[in-house]
Amino acid sequence: MEQNVQEELWSVTIDGNEIKVKPGTTVLQAARMIGENVPPAMCYYSKLEGSGGKCRTCLVKVSQGSTKDPRPMPKLVASCRTTVMDGMVVQNTTSPEVKEARAGVVEFLLLNHPLDCPICDQAGECHLQDLGYEHGKQKTRYEFKRRTFERIDIGPYIQLHMTRCILCYRCVFTCDQITNERVHGILNRGDAAEISTYIEKAIDNDFSGNVIDVCPVGALTDKTFRFKSRVWFTKPVQASCNCGKCSGKVTLWYKGEEVIRVTARKDQWGEVESFICNTCRFERKKTSDWTIEGPTHVDNKSVISANHYELKYDQPVIPQKTSLHADHPSFKEDKKLLN
């Protein structure tokens, strides 16, 4: 009898690593459980229902559908939206086809991206930078004028650089699912699609600031942090407070003695652990507002943990805006630091 009470587990093998997971688990989730060879995800966000499937960076090859039906799937599939079957065999980095397709997706995502990392507040914690570094090619073959948009303020706290947006839809899902009134959305279509409020409107509610944390790139940034510091000059610290609106569990980003930014705590996949309110994010910027819990764990691959950028350079090299390409020397230097 006890056997029957236990939940059935299905076996899935990803790049040779086998794991048993609950039915309904996606390939990406299974890969994250294994912890190795995890497909990159630019649009999927486990805390946002309906997210994923759009960016196509997490494409994998299903070389065996299941034990029952071992046929391979005819096309590469988005691992974030494909649930495992018992006996499924998946290839991620072991498939040349996947690598090739992913490099293609990276090229597409960077086609219209301004690569203005030297002046972007997201640099150093940007998922597109990581993606480009890990899966992209050195040069773009795109020779046409890039799509640009005006930079706009959506409310007092958030700035939208639509030019940097990769249309992951995460911010739209966030406003739909954790705030009571969504006022921004995806307008227009095709490569003219953009995040916008249409008529100038502030995204104004207690949880709106979370769009900054879910944005994988520098499209939605914290105005109170704008140009305050490169992230690798700051020190993240775990802190909490008794907040009536949210969990109050945050990361404080110090520069010297000053708290220059407050964000939600993020897990190893870059997702927030719990969404936080705007009061915590934008208004509690004194150490005395918080109970400090200790330093934030920073992955040793992260540029933030390097934190000795100043030792290598006397001053940051800011290239001309017209030559901001992936193959620009300054871009590569930035990237070296990530290694």
Partner: peptide
Amino acid sequence: YHHESCGQCSPCREGTGWMEK
């Protein structure tokens, strides 16, 4: 196709316009 791409997924959104150009 460039005109009609919905813009949801990156290969089609970016690729159709590139081919047209």
